[in-house]
């Protein structure tokens, strides 16, 4: 796909309290594009402004300055929302309605009706494993069940762009896996998914790109691979009687250090240096059994980026 589902330019939001005294800068000059057919993970500490962005894009809150487009249209219109799905954080449903009725209500608001809507409701309840709860009032639902219902609700109108604010919050591990599968399936049908989440290990599993937000500012954006790859760090598995002496001999020249079980860690400045070392190892008759480029977990990167940005912010 070659068009952008979400485009923001200089999007800024300042909340002012009712008396205008306390101002919160929730989002500062955000420039972001999310291309169609991808899963985008939006990460950031509590209060970073993640939910604020979604609310701005959906016209729930209005921007202080800057502009944004979703599915190619300006965010000021409401009709475009018939092509969008949204699962808010802490969503509430009328407690006196049953799961089926909740879906009926929001389906009708999304412009659906009749047999088509009925069919869709059953299909979605099946998808999120709530079929046997269709006629139960939502006030009797557990937290995870509410979340599943919320996901079904977000998918009612077969949306092209789906905003999910912590969709797996309160869902058990099996349910989380199921939700991940649903999201992957949606992506395969070229839907765009914008995902706010704190569960970085999950985000790592399914997203194409991630953006990291801190205090309303986008501090990093890229593919998961770009972010987590430690470019010039390798783990080598070596075999040979002279491994120890090799390391001793070269540890001042190259950044090589011994780990356990025949493994050692190597930091190089570029591919040339890596090959240089490999030549030397081979020249000494050392067998290179395994060579793995080292990766950070998304979580490690997240924590280090945030703390870096915090230090910068304090200056």
């Amino acid at each position: 796909m070659d068009f952008n589902s979400i485009e923001t330019t200089g999007l800024t939001k300042v909340y002012s309290s009712s008396f205008g005294k306390r101002k919160v800068q929730a989002l500062t000059g955000l420039d972001l594009t999310v291309s169609a057919g991808t899963i985008f993970g939006f990460l950031g500490p509590n209060g970073a402004g993640k939910t604020t962005l979604i609310k701005l894009l959906l016209g729930i809150t209005f921007p202080t300055s800057g502009s944004a487009r979703i599915l190619g249209e300006d965010i000021s219109g409401y009709k475009i929302k018939s092509r969008i799905g949204y699962l808010p954080e802490n969503h509430k449903y009328p407690p006196y309605l049953t799961g089926g009725e909740v879906l009926d209500f929001f389906g009708k608001l999304s412009g659906m009706e009749g047999d088509l809507l009925k069919k869709k409701i059953d299909e979605l309840l099946e998808l999120v494993n709530l079929s046997q709860w269709k006629k139960t009032k939502v006030k009797n639902y557990s937290k995870g069940m509410m979340q599943r219902l919320g996901l079904a609700q977000a998918l009612l109108n077969d949306p092209e762009l789906i905003f999910l604010d912590e969709p797996t919050d309160g869902v058990d591990p099996i349910g989380r896996k199921e939700i991940r599968d649903i999201l992957t399936e949606l992506k395969s049908r070229s839907k765009t998914i914008f995902l706010n989440s704190h569960l970085l290990s999950e985000v790592e599993l399914i997203t194409d790109r991630v953006g990291i937000l801190n205090r309303g500012k986008l501090i990093r954006e890229g593919t998961v691979k770009e972010l987590t790859q430690k470019n010039e760090e390798y783990k080598l598995n070596l075999e040979g009687s002279n491994v120890d002496s090799f390391i001793k001999q070269y540890q001042d020249i190259f950044q090589i250090s011994k780990l356990n079980n025949g493994y050692c860690n190597l930091k190089v400045s570029d591919a040339n240096e890596l090959n240089n070392i490999l030549d030397k190892l081979r020249g000494e008759g050392i067998m290179v059994k395994e060579i793995v480029q080292q990766k950070n977990s998304l979580e490690e990167i997240f924590i280090s980026l945030i703390s870096e940005s915090e230090k910068g912010g304090l200056k």
């Binding site: 609310k55 959906l58 016209g59 729930i60 409401y78 009709k79 475009i80 929302k81 018939s82 969008i84 949204y86 808010p88 954080e89 802490n90 969503h91 509430k92 449903y93 929001f106 608001l109 999304s110 412009g111 609700q153 905003f163």
Partner: peptide, 10 residues
Amino acid sequence: GNIDLLLSKP
């Protein structure tokens, strides 16, 4: 949680 959802509809 209630108004958010309503306003996200067309």
